[in-house]
Design a protein around this nucleic acid. Structure first.
Length: 896
RNA sequence: GCCCGGGUGGUGAAAUUGGUAGACACAAGGGACUUAAAAUCCCUCGGCCUCACGGCUGUACCGGUUCGAUUCCGGUCCCGGGCACCA
């Protein structure tokens, strides 16, 4: 291209438009299976089409794009697809607010967000696009669900849900605010309804042990998953009783079963607590109106674990007693609001001396406390344990003076035949004695619970079941799949509109052909996202869920998404993969070989609460901030009415909380390359980011300087380049050798950082390269050659982050036709060598200066140079060196 | 409450995770160029003491290990994420 047409102005719109057209023309990102090439499947978590992109999306997809382009330039056959996690609650909320069908709202959002993604220049193969709300996708959710039913992995049981008594509808946890319904303000009740579950617990062992094979997953994610699965070995045992029900039969065969991980403290049991729904509680409440009222109260409130764990622990006596299996003591039974019927057997033993929660409960209700574990530091040989002031009583009501602690590392005391045993020994002995009486045994308990997938919601994948009065719940036959969701309903907030839609509801029983009723519950949207990565690998197949193309692309080589998905989505996907493997649909055990968990992009949260309207969120641009003296945000006033709003600190950018930042304005003003560069430069990918656009100017300036240097190259450097390059054998003058050395050093560092997936320092390295280039002499042929090499390195290292400007310059400056197909640069060792190195000089660990030593000097020589140096002599004050520490290439420390 | 992260200048951060704390930027202040402005370029920029040379101190807080600690250990505080029906 002639020099005069190379604009001196950095016109990002023109450059980005032209470059994106070039990619489209060359189908640059179309991924084709090629067995002869190493493949790289790079996947970012697909977005929920909430309306518009926010900065978290820009961050996520830029990271994925940088990795995709970096691997493409490293000669991998790359595939980066994109799709839409299109079912979900926000579409129904929008329908309630605007009376638009969720389908229309969703598809409009997809169209808009797709444009936004395209304007950012991501290397996406759009021919693989999918949306989970389309029947050709969710058909396979239904198909696999039916296979799971056949294998007893899917089954039906009751589930506890949040029930809004005014709207007569099930609420999502998000719709429960301070124990009340979000729209009605009514106190939420717990309600038991039937639902379908997937038996993820059947895979608990494998989900736990296979974590060890995920070498390229962040440790913290594996740790969180392991804790979530929560394998613990304990003892399940029974208290005996002779409490009879109305028909004269023994309730639960005369046994009250409990599970404990602390069977070593079984001799310290002073009461039991059962859930409000437990048969013993129900029985006791029959003639006890006060207890019946308490049980009713327990049934109100949220079902969330966090609420359960933080709420005030309350209980009430049942008046019933059970018999301790080892001591035959009579143990009183309480109803506790903190005991969940859905966990274990819905009952717990209580040892107030050694369990924090039981201790608080015993204090509150003045119950007996019996310590059975010695305080730390004591042994049974020392007899009666004491606190500082008095002997610890064998058994007492709490008097506010002593506390035996909750540790497991001391030996038993006050426990009869078990005295002196350790934690492990005691559990073995207790389990053996219980087993001998046929009243208990060791049991592995998992914290993990089966996955309830039924949602009483419209905008989701229909569960393919038909209810028949004669045949019960009948699976929809495969040839009638998919069960298509009508896409023109408008939910109004009072339950699932499918229940009012005869054309959907009414059908015939597949077994007996009598009129029957279609299931109206839909699937949890986590089902949709549990296998989409496999479908990207084989789009368009209407005859199979996955095919042989997936064998080529799977597993996902790099998965990128928010840390907030560390447990649920990633665990469900791993589970789904294992089920598909057992059905012989796929051959791999794990879906994602390498995982990068991006830190969240946070923004200020502002809200206002009222009983009438529930909670109302304000966007940051709708309020004026108030600060305290030190500049911290303390509150805000709404711009439209000047009244205060509550400041909620920082939180994840989300549609529902209205604190997302739309990248459009920024792309419009500065261009995609600047936005991408700024996002990568501003913080490392895994770190939480409190959003601020301060600094975007600097990124823009940098790209302008890159463009300006391109002009310098075209106008001042190119003409000096010799026809035959001599750089490989040339002896360079010092300033050019230094430039070349610095560039290759920075390249080495950038390659190292890319391996670590730390992109902010890669961006820094590019800035440093440009700083060095701008200072370089440009007055000779050899200078032109060094600049040509160094700028070529800079353009390629920068290109995954800012692909448009680097492509344009690469072509303009005749480096090649397409930077995407250029080889990734590697540092040249010869450019890195130096004769002399500088070491830091410390005396007694304090930095006092530096010394220069020949690069070839050994430790002895370095020590001699260090001690002889003027600086060392000054700070050693004539004392002899006691010890000299040499850290090669870094420092010398003289200890006197 | 439980599990997992994080806390370094006015700001975003760096330090190949036991070896020069603050690279690279943003903001601010000063200067050059300009009729002026913008743009661009140069300089200063943790705190305290010092005319300066330089010294002391400093990586949330308290304590420890070490010749040497942002990095390791013990404790505390604060912030973020997850807690199974937001996605």
């Amino acid at each position: 291209m002639p020099q005069e047409t190379f604009s001196s102005h950095y016109d990002h719109k023109k450059i980005e438009h032209a470059t994106q057209q070039h990619w489209e023309r060359t189908a640059a990102f179309k991924a084709v299976e090629d067995a002869g090439k190493k493949k790289y499947y790079c996947l970012s978590m697909f977005p929920y089409p909430s309306g518009k992109l926010h900065m978290g999306h820009v961050r996520n997809y830029t990271i994925g794009d940088v990795l995709t382009r970096y691997h493409k330039m490293n000669n991998y056959n790359v595939m980066q697809p994109m799709g839409w996690d299109a079912f979900g609650l926000p579409a129904e909320n929008a329908a309630i607010a605007n009376k638009v069908p969720p389908a229309k709202w969703t598809y409009d959002n997809i169209a808009y967000m797709k444009k936004q993604l395209q304007s950012l220049g991501f290397a996406i193969d759009w021919s693989r696009e999918l949306a989970t709300c389309k029947p050709d996708y969710y058909k396979w959710n239904q198909w696999l669900f039916l296979r799971m039913l056949e294998k007893d992995i899917a089954y039906k049981k009751t589930q506890v849900v949040n029930w809004d008594p005014v709207d007569q509808t099930v609420l999502a946890n998000e719709q429960v605010i301070d124990g009340r319904g979000w729209r009605t303000g009514a106190v939420v009740e717990k309600r038991e309804i039937p639902g379908y579950y997937l038996a993820i617990t059947q895979y608990a062992n494998e989900l736990l042990s296979d974590l060890d094979t995920l070498d390229n997953w962040p440790e913290r994610v594996k740790l969180m998953q392991a804790n979530w699965i929560g394998k613990s070995t304990g003892v399940r045992f029974a208290f005996r009783h002779d409490i009879k029900g109305d028909g004269g039969e023994l309730i639960n065969d005369g046994k009250l079963w409990v599970f404990t991980t602390r069977a070593d403290t079984i001799m310290g049991v002073t009461f039991c607590a059962v859930a409000a729904e437990h048969p013993l509680a129900t029985h006791a409440a029959k003639n006890n109106p006060e207890l019946a009222a308490f049980i009713e109260k327990c049934k109100s409130g949220s079902v969330m674990e966090a609420d359960m764990a933080t709420m005030e622990k309350e209980g009430m006596r049942t008046g019933l007693f059970v018999t301790h299996p080892l001591t035959n003591e009579q143990i009183e039974v309480w109803v506790g609001n903190y005991v969940l019927m859905s966990y274990g057997d819905g009952a717990v033993m209580a040892v107030p001396a050694h369990d924090e929660r039981d201790f608080a409960f015993a204090k509150k209700y003045k119950l007996r406390i019996k310590p059975v574990i010695l305080p730390e530091g004591l042994t049974s040989a020392q007899g009666q344990p004491r606190t500082a002031s008095s002997a610890i009583p064998m058994e007492s009501l709490w008097d506010g003076d002593w506390h035996p602690g909750f540790a497991t590392h001391s030996e038993l005391w006050n426990s009869g035949k078990y005295n002196g045993l350790t934690y492990e020994q005691a559990i073995d002995a207790v389990a053996a004695d219980l087993a001998a009486k046929n009243l208990g045994e060791k049991k592995v308990q998992w914290r993990l619970r089966d996955w309830g997938i039924s949602r009483q919601r419209y905008w989701g994948c229909p569960i393919p079941i038909i209810h028949c009065d004669s045949c019960g719940s009948v699976p929809v036959p495969d040839d009638q799949l998919p069960v298509v969701l009508p896409d023109d309903c408008v939910p109004d907030g009072s339950g699932n509109p499918l229940n009012k839609l005869p054309s959907f509801l009414n059908c015939n029983c597949p077994k007996c052909n009598k009129p029957a009723r279609r299931e109206t519950d839909t699937m949890d949207t986590f089902v949709d996202s549990s296998w989409y990565y496999a479908r990207f690998a084989c789009p368009g197949n209407d005859n199979a869920m996955v095919d042989e193309r997936a064998d080529y692309w799977m597993t996902v080589d790099q998965y990128i998404g928010g840390i907030e998905h560390a447990i649920l989505h990633l665990l469900y996907s791993r589970f789904w993969t294992k089920v598909m493997r057992d059905l012989k649909l796929v051959s791999y055990r794990e879906p994602f070989s390498r995982l990068l968990t991006q830190g969240m992009v946070l923004n200020h949260l502002f809200s206002r609460r009222s009983d009438a309207t529930g909670i109302e969120w304000f966007a940051p641009e709708e309020v004026d901030l108030q600060h305290d003296a030190s500049g911290r945000v303390t509150g805000a006033l709404a711009k439209h009415d000047g009244k205060p709003v509550d400041y909620g600190g920082f939180g994840t950018m989300s549609k529902s909380k209205r604190n997302g930042v739309d990248p459009n304005a920024m792309i419009e003003q500065y261009g995609a390359d600047t936005c991408r560069f700024f996002m990568m430069f501003t913080s490392p990918p895994e770190q939480t980011l409190e959003w601020s656009d301060a600094g975007i100017e600097g990124s823009y300036r940098f790209l302008k300087r890159i463009w300006a240097f391109g002009n310098v190259f075209a106008n001042e450097v190119r003409s000096k380049l010799p026809a035959a390059r001599t750089l490989a054998s040339a002896k360079l003058p010092d300033d050019l050798a230094a430039l070349r050395r610095e560039t290759h050093l920075l390249l080495k560092q950038a390659n190292y950082d890319l391996g670590k997936q730390q992109f902010n320092t890669v961006a820094s390295a590019c800035m440093k390269m440009l700083n060095a280039l701008e200072k370089a002499p440009k007055d000779s042929a050899i200078a032109a050659e060094v600049i040509e090499e160094c700028f070529g390195i800079l353009l390629r290292v920068l290109s995954p982050i800012t692909p448009h400007i680097t492509h344009a310059l690469w072509v303009e400056l005749s480096y090649g036709d397409d930077i995407l197909t250029a080889p990734w640069p590697e540092p040249i060792e010869a450019a890195l060598v130096q004769d002399e190195i500088e070491l830091v000089l410390q005396v007694l660990g304090k930095t006092r200066g530096s010394i220069k030593v020949p690069a070839s000097a050994d430790n002895k020589a370095i020590e001699a140079i260090a001690v002889a140096s003027e600086t060392a002599q000054r700070y050693m004050e004539g004392k002899p060196a006691k010890k000299i520490i040499v850290v090669p290439g870094r420092l010398v420390n003289i200890v006197v």
